[in-house]
Structure formats: structure tokens, C-alpha cells
Amino acid sequence: GVRTGAVEVSADGARLAELVALVEKGVLTLRVADTYPLADAAGAHARLAEGGVRGRLVLVP
């Protein structure tokens, strides 16, 4: 009953630029619930643990 999966991520500036263009055109929409400074990552985790978050919590440097 145990499942595993793998995710591989590699840097690709050109593909990221394509995504940015789609967001700017409104083709892709983003739902950001809140942003937190990287130094407050623990606060972001606590907020997620509370539940009810609609959207993503974003850590910013």
C-alpha cells in the first residue's frame, strides 16, 4: 500500500520565460494567498498547518 514517486527539476530559463509570458497574457492565473519573507518560513508553515489556505503561500528572499 505504499506508493513512491520521483520529481526531477532542472533550471530552464527559456521555459520559465514562456510561463511568465503566459501569466502576463492572462492565459495562466496564479492564486497567491500570502507572501512571507524567507526568514519567516516557520510562520508560513504554521499558517498552512492552520488549514483553510486558498492559494499558495510564497516565500520571498
Results as ranks from 00 to 15, higher is better:
T35Y: 13
V9M: 09
A44N: 02
T4R: 13
R56M: 08
A17L: 09
A49I: 08
L19S: 11
R31I: 13
A42N: 10
E50A: 06
A33C: 00
D40E: 14
A39M: 09
A44M: 04
G55Y: 08
R15H: 02
Y36P: 04
D12F: 04
L57I: 03
L30Q: 08
G26D: 12
L22V: 05
R15T: 10
T35E: 14
R54H: 10
P61N: 09
P37G: 05
R54A: 12
D40A: 02
V27K: 07
A41R: 11
A6H: 15
A11V: 07
A6F: 14
A33R: 07
A14Q: 14
A46I: 00
V23F: 00
G26I: 07
A17R: 07
G13D: 13
V23C: 07
A41I: 11
V23G: 06
V20Y: 03
G55M: 09
E18Y: 02
V32R: 08
G1P: 14
R31L: 15
L48K: 00
L38W: 05
D40S: 01
P37E: 10
P37T: 04
A21C: 04
A33V: 04
L22D: 13
V27M: 12
V53K: 07
V27A: 13
A17E: 12
A21Y: 01
A21E: 11
V2A: 06
A49D: 13
V23N: 02
K25N: 10
G13Y: 05
V58A: 06
R3S: 15
A49M: 02
V53I: 01
V2E: 13
R54G: 01
L38A: 06
G26L: 08
A17M: 01
A6E: 15
A6G: 11
V2S: 14
G55F: 13
K25D: 15
E8A: 08
L16H: 05
L57G: 01
H45E: 03
V53T: 09
R31H: 15
E50C: 02
A11Y: 05
P61V: 02
V27W: 07
V2W: 10
Y36T: 09
A39W: 00
R15M: 03
G52A: 06
E50I: 10
V20R: 08
G55T: 05
V2C: 00
P61S: 01
A17G: 14
V60P: 05
G1W: 15
L22G: 11
A42M: 11
Y36F: 15
L30P: 06
V7K: 12
A39I: 07
V7Y: 15
T4S: 05
K25E: 14
V7N: 11
E50S: 00
A11L: 12
R47A: 09
V27I: 14
